[in-house]
Design a binder for these strands. Structure first.
Lengths: 317, 317
DNA sequence: GTAATGTCTTTTATCGGGAAAAAACATTTT
DNA sequence: AAAATGTTTTTTCCCGATAAAAGACATTAC
């Protein structure tokens, strides 16, 4: 008889003195369930680990539970699928999020909510209590989040909200345009046999598919948008440029979530701009690239700016 | 009789279960001692707080100790200086550093030491034990430090050292040049009555003074260098550009510490380049500014690059 | 009545502890 | 002997607790 590993039993105990949630296990378990649908037997433990992006310890916990719930028969190398996963087999979605994600969502909801004025001070303890997590996690989140330029730390004191203002959007897009223009120029200088051209071709196909079904799939654009721009930024071969896209991605992620007005229209325009941009890149003509890039970034800036209410202005220092 | 505030008694207890060092108090105390030299009586508590950059709670702890050690006579509003501070009155320098500073120094020493190969993994626990601090502080430090682009986090696993390499220096200087060129252009567009011109004049005077005494004061350049470039970067009015100077400042701080070769010579050249740069700014001619800025940044890059041996890690002096 | 001082409360910084997850080591299987 | 599985150790993540430091409130002095 196999002993149930510790990792699989967490959350079943009395929520006493809980130290760390087992969301990594739960998320990997759910992903593994989807994998189950396709095969009759599972690969080796190390292989599963790589596939799911977790350690073998977690893989074994997953297999343990799958055996217990009659999903598979597990005997050493033999992992036979006994039945297809049912909805009840999955862990609830909300239990698969990391603490960092939970805190970020909670924080962003507050930040974008009415009454989040610039200059307002942020209270770690209050945030922690409100979200229901320890102060350490909130502190770590704020430190990580600070690089987005929306909050600032007062030396051995509280954090200050700088606010999601028009000024912020302008400063962000200024850098974005500088970086992307430079990356796009670097992109066309890449050798013919570079892998980026294959990636670009694939992205072009996906853009065309999306364009032809834009009426129903317009909400899939944001994901494609990020992949496309990240590919371009990566051509800079500069970690600061590549990392800066995290700031843009974060902002656009939340921007897309709360500004649904004209979404279909906006995305349709953007897809066409991307296609023109891709064509310019493939022409390898720096002048054409510059023009297509500028045009797209200009409308991206307009979109972002139009979503920021006038009322939320930065306070004079 | 006044009760001794808790803050003043820390460190005197048995180092058991210590939660937070009172370095803020000790550092402010030392700075207050220096203040004592000049006046016969101290200002009000709130005023002292602003002067020292600490809360009134800490100010009162300082005054308490100064009374106890016979430095002042303290009776409500009356704070009469009884004697000049002696060397023994000061807290040791090493006790005035914040934990973050201690960890940073320790970490940088390791990073620049022999055998710090790129790709090496960073162990939070080991670092914490070695420095003699809790893991939380180390974790927070690593998160904060990660924006410098020298380390990277593997998702729910360890940190990886990217190394202080030639590639790093090139990527850093690429952004620096982009940002500073843009800031310098913004600088000359600032109105005549802007405060920056006064600041620039002051910096020019200090540069001339340093230039005339370069033989003995060359090591004072790095501080002047930072103030000058920060003034220019601030003209961009872009938080991302301003914040990026933190990365540059950090790198140059440690660079100056371990690369003492030709220091006098290098600084002498840099001061002259700064003076030419300042003259260009004052001319308000964008073309001249561009040229002077480019020239200085080019030699700054050379200096940084020359301290990083090809294919190897940098070494301390 | 304003601005200081005196007192009390809240928040931040840091540690140690414990569960989750990773990683290392030992043993088997093919 | 290579690669899997089984077992043990280490490290990461997160919480609660506590002293330092900040901040708020109450009182007094000018």
């Amino acid at each position: 008889m196999r002993l149930k590993p510790a990792v699989a039993s967490a959350g079943e105990a009395t929520g006493q003195g809980m130290s760390k949630s087992n969301n990594v296990y739960k998320d990997a378990f759910n992903r593994c369930l989807r994998l189950l649908d396709e095969t009759k037997s599972l690969p080796s433990e190390p292989e599963l680990g790589t596939l799911l992006g977790v350690s073998r310890t977690t893989v074994r916990s997953i297999l343990s539970r799958m055996e217990e719930t009659g999903l598979i028969d597990w005997n050493k190398r033999n992992k036979t699928v006994l039945r297809a996963p049912r909805p009840e087999d999955f862990f609830p979605e909300e239990e698969t999020d990391s603490l960092a994600e939970i805190i970020e969502r909670s924080f962003m909801r507050r930040l974008l909510a009415e009454g989040a004025e610039a200059g307002m001070q942020i209270n770690e303890l209050e945030l922690a209590r409100e979200i229901g997590v320890g102060t350490t996690s909130v502190r770590e989140f704020l430190i990580r989040f600070s690089r987005f330029g929306l909050i600032e730390k007062r030396r051995n004191s509280h954090w200050v909200l700088k606010g999601f203002t028009r000024a912020f959007a302008l400063e962000l897009t200024e850098i974005r345009e500088m970086f992307e223009l430079r990356s796009a120029v670097a992109f066309v200088a890449l050798p013919e046999d570079s892998a980026v051209w294959v990636d670009l071709d694939m992205l072009e196909v996906q853009h065309r598919q999306l364009a032809s079904e834009i009426a129903t799939r317009f909400n899939e654009f944001s994901e494609l948008d990020e992949r496309f721009h990240r590919l371009i930024h990566r051509a800079s071969h500069n970690r600061f440029i590549v990392d800066f896209y995290d700031v843009i991605a974060m902002i656009f992620h939340y921007h897309y979530q709360w500004n649904k007005a004209e979404e279909r229209q906006r995305n349709e325009v953007a897809v066409q701009e991307h296609l023109a941009y891709i064509a310019a890149l493939k022409s390898r003509d720096p002048a054409k690239v510059d023009a297509a890039c500028r045009k797209h970034l200009k409308s991206a800036r307009q979109t972002l700016l139009s979503s920021i209410p006038e009322g939320r202005q930065a306070q004079p220092a």
